[in-house]
């Protein structure tokens, strides 16, 4: 079974916006990453679709989400070392879990891709590594407030900006970030495979993160 993604899924954790004012604040606190609030809407349809699944059990919206995410999840799992048949099976399982857990999705706390990434990651740990995935305790601070649309909008804009910054990294830095997230290899396994010293790999990842922070500021 999939271990929950407690840090992202608990609607009670909306209270956390008081301390978690979106990605920008998080990054600012993380060694001075900073992001400006962005206005206007560019990429809002995925979270919108997920909300239609959450609030209306909308099968058409789910089918569109499936068309977008299922191939990506399958590709992601194959990069993680899964054979095609297993990747297909797990991708279906992840999308079914997206339907089941849509009620826990909060667009002010995570973009659609981020939320689905955490589900796919946990399922990968469970299916490929046969391990449990301990998740942080949910933060329950009281009854649910009005949905915070401004925070949700800001988070989407920032997520898009982060994706652009990732695409703009030098290839030798970007590839290491991607490999880490694919769970393809641990740092020391990447070192053994590429012949790069472990220190070089760590410092390239650090450079990549520094650069992302600068891009977001």
């Amino acid at each position: 079974m999939l271990t929950g993604c407690g840090s992202l899924e608990n609607p009670d954790a909306k209270r956390e916006q008081r301390s978690y004012a979106g990605l920008g604040a998080a990054l600012r606190r993380s060694n001075g990453w900073a992001m400006e609030a962005v206005t206007g809407s560019a990429e809002d349809n995925l979270a919108e679709l997920l909300l239609r699944v959450r609030d209306g059990q909308d099968e058409a919206a789910f089918a569109t989400l499936f068309g977008h995410f299922a191939p990506r999840i399958k590709g992601f799992l194959m990069r993680s070392g899964a054979a095609e048949a297993l990747a297909e099976e797990v991708a279906q399982d992840v999308m079914a879990t997206v339907w089941q857990k849509a009620g826990l999705y909060d667009p002010a706390r995570a973009g659609a891709a981020t939320w689905i990434f955490t589900i796919a990651r946990n399922r990968r740990i469970d299916a490929l590594r046969k391990q449990r995935r301990p998740e942080p305790e949910d933060v329950g601070w009281g009854p649910e407030p009005e949905p915070d649309q401004a925070a949700a909008m800001e988070l989407q804009q920032e997520s898009e900006k982060l994706a652009e910054a990732l695409r703009g990294l030098p290839p030798n830095q970007r590839v290491l970030i991607e490999r880490a997230y694919f769970g393809e290899l641990s740092h020391s396994e990447i070192a053994a495979e590429t012949g790069l010293p472990l220190g070089t790999i760590k410092s390239r990842i650090r450079l990549a993160l520094d650069r992302l922070r600068r891009e977001m500021s």
Binding site: L8, R72, M78, R109, F117, E158, A163, R167, I177
Partner: peptide
């Protein structure tokens, strides 16, 4: 917890960009 949210967002960005199968 807030910093972790940023690194999970980076995971979301990686998933968006992965070549689909």
């Amino acid at each position: 917890r807030a910093r972790l949210g940023a690194y999970e967002a980076l995971g979301g960005a990686v998933l968006e960009d992965v070549p689909g199968a």
